[in-house]
Design a protein around this nucleic acid. Structure first.
Lengths: 349, 349
DNA sequence: CCCGGCTACGTTAGCGATAACAAGATGGGG
DNA sequence: CCCCATCTTGTTATCGCTAACGTAGCCGGG
C-alpha cells in the first residue's frame, strides 16, 4: 500500500523487500515471478512484504539481466485515420493474455520519421515489431532485417516483406470494386481521393481500380484529390465540384468511407437518384457509419482482424527461442480477403 | 547498414563499435549521446563504425545505468472511443521534440485492468504518467502517489487529483448545456446516453445537466441508455424509441456526438422541424461530423488540447531533477473551457 | 623549464535484476 | 544410522551501459 514511515524517496528495490521479509533477493525475485520452487509460507511472507512496501519491480533491470522484454513495437502513420486505432484495438486485445505489451510510435506518413521511431523502438529491444506498410527507407529496412526479432508488416500484401506480412491486397481490392461497378452497368466513373503520395495503399487501390476499368475498356472520366480538413465535409465539397464539372458521371468511387459518406449525404440532399442514376462506393467498411440514411457500398479492410493476426504471429514467434526465430524464419504472408458490401449505393442486378 | 560478414547473430554492443573504431566504450557512448568532449576526428570515426555495423544502442542498459527513461506512460480506457485517439494525437505531437516517447496502455473501462496496466507501466520506471480520469482503485492511487514521477490525470477536473490535472469540468459542461437549452425555450427534455457506470465523465455530465434543469424547476421527462453497437445507428434507434414513448418532447440531449448525429439523421428523415419543434444536442465537438446536413449543437471537449497540455506538464516536470519533482510538487489543475456550439439544432434567440 | 589548466580520452564501479550453480534442510529406503 | 534424492534457499557472475573520477598530452605564461 502506501509508503512506509521512513520515506526517503529512494526507489524500492528487491533488496528492500528481501530485508523486510528476511529472505534473499533471489527468493523474492522467484516469488514475484512465480518461478522455481518456493515454499508456501515464504511466498506469503514475501508477497505480504512487497504489498506492504508498495514495491514495483524494475523491469529495466529485469530485462537487462534476462535478455527478455515483454514489449512489442507498433509503428503506424497516424492516430487520426480511424483505421489505425482499430488495428491497435485488435493488437491490444490479442496481446492481452500473452504478457506482451504494445508500444506505439507514430510516423505521420514520413519515411524519415519512421526511421527515427523505429530506431528508438529497437533500442528498447522489443520482442517483436509490427509496422504498417511495406515501403520503408533503406535504413529502416536494414534495421528490420537485422533486428533479430519477429517483424510483421501490416495492412498491405502487394509487395515484398521483410519477414511476416498480414494484410489485404489493395490493388486487388481496387480491381474488384471496378469489376463490381462495371457489372452493375455503370460506365462513366469518377474517382475522389486523398492527395497523399505517401499513402501507398490508397495509391495501389487506385492503380488496381484503373486496371479493372481498363480490362473492360473503360477509363476514369474525372478525378479529384483533397488534403486536410474534415473528411465528411471534404467529401461533400469534392462531390459538388466534380459533379459540376462532369455532370454526366454515373458513378463516384471514393478512396475512403468518410469522404464517401460526405458525398452520399450531398447526393441525397440534392435529390439524386442513388443508386439508379448515380452509384457511390467507398473503402474500409467503417462500422462507425452504419446508421447513415443509406448504407454506402464499401469493402471491409479487415482492420481489427489484421491487428489480431499480426499480434498472433508476434506472440507465437516471440515465444520461440532466439535460435528458432533466427533459424526457421518461416516467411509468411497472411492475406485476408476484403468482402464487397454493395450496400444501398450500387444497383443490384 | 547491413550486418557484417561474420554474422553470429550476437546482438551488437558498445564493445563491438569500440573495437571497430579503436577507442574505448566510454568514448563511443559519448559520441552516440553527443555528450562530453570528443574530438571531431574520433567522433566521425566512431559514427562511421556504428553506421557500418548497424549498431543500435541498448536503452535498457542505458536506462539502468543512468536512471533515466525517456518513456511516458499513457493510460486510456479504449481506442474505440474516438476521443482518446485524439488525445493521443495531441500528446504525441507535443512530445515530438522533447525526446520523450509515449507508451500506451488500455483499460477497457475496467478499474482492475487499469491497476494491472499501471503496475506494468510503472515497472518500466517511466518519466511520467498520463492517465484518464480521476477515479482509480485504492491500489492504483497509491501507486500513482508513490511513483515518484509526474502524474497527470486528464479529461476531468471534477474531483481530487493525485498530482497535476488537465481537463474540463463535465459537471459544469452539462449544466451549461442545460442552461442554454432552457434559455432557448425548450422545456420537455429527454436524455439519451451510454449504459456505462464506469464512464464517470458521462455520469458527471448528466448530473450537471440535471442540476441545471433543476435550477430552472425542470426535470428530465425521459431517459434512454444503450451499450455496444455502432453509435450512429444506436442513436437512430434510441431516438425512435424515445419519441414513440414520449412524443411530446421538445429537446433531446445526447451524451455524445455520434449518437446525437444518428438521432439528427433520423429526425431529418422523419421530417421533424429541427430545431423549431425539436432541438438536439450532443457532446464532444468531434470534427469528424462536420459535413452532416445540419451542424449538431455540441460542446467541444478540447481533446487534442488536453493531450498537448498534459504532455507539456510532463515534459516540463520530467526535465526537472528528482529532488525538485519530489520537493516542489506544484499541485496544479489546468481547467480548459469547453465552448457551446449551438450549431443548427438549437433555436437561436 | 616548471606548473596550472585545458582537452580528450580511459578506468572503475555500479544500476537492479536474473541465470546458473551451490548448498543447507528434509525425509525415506536400505 | 547413513546416504542420496528432493525441496528450498542462497551465492556469484553477468547483462550493456553510464556517472564520476582519473590521467595523459598539450599549451602558454611566469
Amino acid at each position: 500500500m502506501a509508503r512506509s514511515p521512513h520515506d526517503t524517496r529512494r526507489p524500492l528495490t528487491l533488496r528492500d523487500v528481501s530485508e523486510a521479509s528476511g529472505v534473499s533477493e533471489m527468493t523474492v525475485s522467484r516469488v514475484l515471478r512465480n518461478r522455481g520452487d518456493v515454499s508456501e509460507t515464504t511466498r506469503e511472507r514475501v508477497l505480504e512484504a512487497a504489498r506492504r512496501l508498495g514495491y514495483v519491480p524494475n523491469k529495466i533491470a529485469g530485462a537487462l539481466a534476462s535478455q527478455r522484454v515483454n514489449l512489442v513495437g507498433v509503428i503506424i502513420p497516424s492516430f487520426s485515420n480511424l483505421v489505425f486505432p482499430e488495428v491497435l484495438s485488435g493488437i491490444s486485445a490479442e496481446l492481452e493474455n500473452t504478457g506482451l505489451q504494445p508500444v506505439v510510435g507514430v510516423t505521420d506518413y514520413s519515411a524519415e520519421k519512421e526511421e527515427r521511431v523505429l530506431y528508438e523502438m529497437l533500442s528498447w529491444r522489443p520482442s517483436g515489431v509490427i509496422i504498417a506498410g511495406l515501403e520503408h527507407s533503406g535504413n529502416a529496412r536494414a534495421m528490420l532485417e537485422n533486428a533479430g526479432v519477429p517483424v510483421v508488416e501490416i495492412m498491405d500484401v502487394d509487395g515484398a516483406g521483410v519477414d511476416a506480412v498480414v494484410g489485404i491486397s489493395h490493388r486487388r481490392a481496387g480491381r474488384h470494386m471496378a469489376e463490381a461497378i462495371i457489372a452493375a452497368g455503370y460506365r462513366r466513373i469518377g474517382f475522389l481521393g486523398t492527395k497523399m503520395p505517401e499513402d501507398h495503399r490508397a495509391r495501389k487501390r487506385l492503380e488496381g481500380f484503373n486496371e479493372g476499368l481498363a480490362a473492360a475498356g473503360i477509363a476514369l472520366v474525372d478525378t479529384e484529390f483533397y488534403s486536410g480538413g474534415s473528411a465528411l465535409s471534404k467529401g461533400r465539397e469534392m462531390t459538388e465540384a466534380m459533379l459540376a464539372r462532369s455532370p454526366d458521371l454515373d458513378f463516384l468511387y471514393y478512396s475512403n468511407d468518410m469522404i464517401g459518406a460526405g458525398g452520399l449525404l450531398y447526393c441525397l440532399e440534392k435529390g439524386f437518384d442513388v443508386p439508379g442514376q448515380l452509384g457511390l462506393a467507398g473503402f474500409n467498411g467503417v462500422e462507425l457509419l452504419d446508421g447513415l440514411p443509406r448504407k454506402l457500398a464499401t469493402m471491409d479492410a479487415c482492420r481489427r482482424e489484421i491487428g489480431r493476426k499480426a499480434a498472433q504471429v508476434v506472440a507465437r514467434r516471440a515465444g520461440a527461442t532466439a535460435d528458432e526465430a533466427a533459424g526457421g524464419v518461416e516467411e509468411q504472408v497472411i492475406e485476408l480477403q476484403p468482402v464487397i458490401e454493395l450496400g444501398d449505393t450500387i444497383r443490384r442486378p
